[in-house]
């Protein structure tokens, strides 16, 4: 039947807790991303200041945002899998 999902998704007891964790991590990342945008808007000259190993803030912050997204993804998956294993087993 066309209106049904391609596959049936089982009940997820951990959905609420996973959603809460997702919102917390989203807010944390948004604050850090907003910091990057705010520096660009208000004090763009700060972006050119060299920090570690001759790299400027623009590079460190930019690369940092990309790497942080990957790390936070792994953390999120670790805790979600743990919650699913605990709650869906019960």
């Amino acid at each position: 039947m066309l209106h049904e999902p391609a596959v049936t998704v089982g009940k997820d007891n951990a959905a609420a807790r996973k959603s809460k964790l997702g919102v917390i991590l989203f807010i944390a990342y948004t604050i850090i991303y907003s910091g990057f945008v705010l520096i660009g808007l208000t004090k763009p000259e700060i972006m050119g200041i060299q920090l570690i190993g001759g790299q400027n803030i623009a590079i460190i912050y930019g690369f940092g945002l990309i790497v942080l997204a990957i790390i936070m993804g792994f953390i999120y998956n670790y805790f979600c899998t743990k919650m699913e294993n605990e709650m869906d087993k019960n």
């Binding site: 997702g22 919102v23 997204a69 999120y76």
Partner: peptide, 17 residues
């Protein structure tokens, strides 16, 4: 590049599941 990648955070934490 930064913005396109950051957008995936919204997809993962809020939208995917």
């Amino acid at each position: 590049s930064i913005g396109y990648l950051a957008g995936w955070v919204v997809a993962l934490f809020l939208v995917a599941e």
